[in-house]
């Protein structure tokens, strides 16, 4: 049970990073990225190949993953960010599927459907299994906390205000002198880098990755985390990811009470539960569990003329 809790928390930490990255892109900037899993996959394989084929240490693999994510995000953004939101959605969806198919077919590089075995761990290998699991968890949570700090900073500064303005109506910030394209590009690339970093953490945590780990349902879980938690609210994404992962992973504890269903049916049931939660949230609390925070001015409002007079 203890080991299982550590495992769930590790997965939750990875989903928190993914959800925060998507919240920057969608919640703040309004960019519809359906290709979350593509960047996640790319980061996982880039990191795995760097450490296994080129014997880089874990940190090296993480850096390679982030650079790969940045390049892929930048190229995709240059291709499609000038187009409207729907185009970006389709392009990113196609990107994720393309990445998965490439990795499935290029056996020489990725091991194909058999998977890529990753021996390099983010921590020293000399400890017991459980100590190791705790240390991997610590690494993932550190990543999640750093990501959260970065997002809170970006969302809380005038930078975040420009992103929210672009989300509301891009013509307004443009006619007030903001280079909308540059902001969108930055937001998209930062999100892509973080998704790839999450992929690297995931790869070195599960140690065997196959293209089957990176199908669209992963992206759907990340989207649900953002929608349920509250788009535009960074703490909301943390809570949303925790809720979604808890339902998804925790539902297997219900198996003993669901004797009339076989394992596959129970597994399908998880998506039904998550889908129901999503529908309920959108119906009864469309702004998410935590609505977008109200931004308070740096100088408190005073009735100055009255005070001076």
């Amino acid at each position: 049970m203890d080991a299982y809790l550590v495992a769930i928390l590790t997965i939750a930490g990875i989903y928190i990073i993914l959800a925060l990255a998507l919240n920057l892109q969608f919640g703040l900037t309004g960019l519809v990225n359906f290709g979350v899993v593509g960047f996640f996959c790319l980061g996982a394989y880039a990191s795995g190949i760097a450490t296994e084929s080129f014997h880089a240490p874990f940190v090296g693999g993480l850096c390679v993953a982030m650079v790969t994510g940045a390049v892929a995000g930048g190229l995709l953004a240059l291709l499609s960010l000038r187009l409207s939101g729907d185009f970006l959605a389709i392009v990113t969806l196609g990107f994720a599927e393309t990445i998965r198919l490439i990795f499935n077919n290029e056996d020489w590089l990725t091991g194909g459907p058999k998977g890529l075995l990753i021996m390099t761990r983010p921590v020293l290998a000399d400890y017991s299994r459980s100590a190791n699991a705790w240390m991997v968890l610590a690494v993932v949570l550190t990543g999640a906390v750093l990501t959260l700090a970065l997002m809170l900073r970006l969302a809380g500064t005038p930078y975040g205000r420009v992103l929210r303005a672009i989300r509301e109506d891009e013509l307004v910030p443009a006619t007030l002198g903001k280079n909308v394209f540059v902001y969108r590009l930055q937001s998209f690339v930062i999100g892509s880098v973080l998704m790839a970093a999450a992929g690297s953490l995931y790869a070195h945590y599960v140690q065997t990755i196959t293209p089957d780990n990176f199908t669209t349902p992963v992206a759907i879980l990340v989207w649900m985390s953002v929608i349920v938690g509250g788009p535009g609210n960074m703490l909301g994404s943390v809570i949303g990811a925790l809720v979604v992962v808890t339902i998804y992973e925790g539902s297997r504890f219900l198996t003993p009470w669901l004797g009339f269903l076989d394992a596959e049916q129970v597994s399908a049931l998880r998506f039904i539960v998550i889908g129901t939660v999503l529908i309920l949230v959108i119906r009864f609390r469309p702004e998410g569990l935590l609505p977008e925070p109200k931004h308070t001015p740096v100088v408190p409002a005073t009735r100055r003329p009255a005070l001076k007079g």
């Binding site: 970065l150 970006l154 500064t157 005038p158 930078y159 205000r161 420009v162 903001k178």
Partner: peptide
């Protein structure tokens, strides 16, 4: 604060 580097 409107530039990325400034904000960070």
């Amino acid at each position: 604060g409107e530039s990325l580097t400034g904000a960070l």
